[in-house]
């Protein structure tokens, strides 16, 4: 009897005591929401190759890529700055996971079309996914005049393909790492011994130096024997500088080529030899599709 009474009295008091609780507790989440990792890389390129980043949904990015000549050509060629190869390109974020690209490079007057699709996005919260995974595919068509016009030439001989998996993880707010297995197929190669299919394993990273500047590097190791014998592994190191709608990437690389088909399978420069190209990418983003703000 007495205990019951005590319980009753305690119950009576319990309510006002509860009211003293921290009101913040009211905000406790019943259901965790998806917390996506953002800005694994700052640009859609790590340095010269693709990163897991896509242009934002509805944004069109105009990219100017520029690789100068070799530094070891000396003062006569103003350390390579007298010559340059360029690529002009557009990338468009169709939605949150798909981006399409078009571009044209000076080397062999090459046109390229590409898709980049996000398969996994690094996230915590509702689901825990430790990495981001994207697929990048590109078709390149060179448009040089045929070297031997008298023989039968096929249009398909102009075409080469690149397939890449981009596997990235943002380890901390300052450090991201990406693995880039690549397959390149050329319909036509110069010599019989050349590889039609070239495989490589690449890695790229970003180290944030300040809120707007980061140090980036990228390396592609050739796995295909013949190609590895004839060419060099592509290595690039650079910095990203971002200002508002622009990202400016300034770098040094041993690759003259700008698209994967060229810089992975056909890099002939050797860093140790001083065959280094200074280069830069400038990208400017335009938002074409505005996100609708529901009105109250």
């Amino acid at each position: 009897m007495k205990t019951q009474l005590i319980i009753a009295i305690l119950l009576l008091f319990a309510v006002p005591i509860m009211a003293q609780d921290d009101m913040m507790d009211l905000f406790a989440e019943e259901e965790p929401t998806a917390d996506y990792t953002f800005a694994t890389f700052k640009a859609t390129k790590v340095v010269i190759g693709q990163s897991v980043e896509n242009p934002g949904n509805g944004s069109l990015v105009f990219v100017i890529q520029h690789h100068f000549g070799r530094v070891n050509t000396g003062i006569e060629e103003f350390f390579g700055l007298d010559q340059a190869t360029t690529r002009l390109g557009f990338e468009y974020g169709v939605n949150d996971w798909l981006a399409l690209g078009l571009g044209r490079s000076m080397i062999e007057k090459t046109y390229d079309g590409s898709v980049k699709a996000k398969i996994l996005r690094q996230q915590t919260g509702k689901r825990n996914i430790p990495i981001s995974l994207s697929y990048f595919g590109s078709i390149a068509i060179q448009s040089m005049p045929w070297p031997e016009p008298e023989r039968t030439n096929y249009f398909s001989s102009r075409i080469s393909y690149a397939n890449q998996l981009l596997i990235a993880r943002k380890f901390s707010r300052a450090f991201s790492l990406q693995l880039i297995p690549t397959h390149i197929h050329r319909n036509l190669v110069e010599k019989k011994t050349d590889d039609n299919d070239v495989f490589s394993l690449g890695a790229g990273g970003r180290l944030k130096l300040s809120n707007r500047i980061s140090l980036n590097a990228e390396y592609h190791y050739l796995l295909s024997q013949q190609t590895a014998e004839d060419f060099h592994n592509s290595f690039s190191v650079g910095i990203d500088i971002e200002t508002g709608g622009h990202v400016f990437q300034l770098f040094a690389t041993n690759s003259q080529g700008i698209i994967a088909q060229q810089f992975i399978a056909r890099t002939d420069g050797d860093w140790l030899n001083g065959d280094i190209h200074i280069g830069f990418n400038i990208s400017r983003s335009f938002q074409l599709k505005k996100k609708k703000q529901p009105k109250d």
Binding site: F38, G56, S59, R212, Q287, Q293
Partner: peptide, 20 residues
């Protein structure tokens, strides 16, 4: 939510540093 995707990224990454 911002109108421009890039603004939203800059807001979170550079200004309010929402990861911290």
């Amino acid at each position: 939510a911002f109108e421009k995707a890039l603004m939203q990224e800059h807001f979170n990454e550079n200004y309010v540093e929402s990861d911290l």
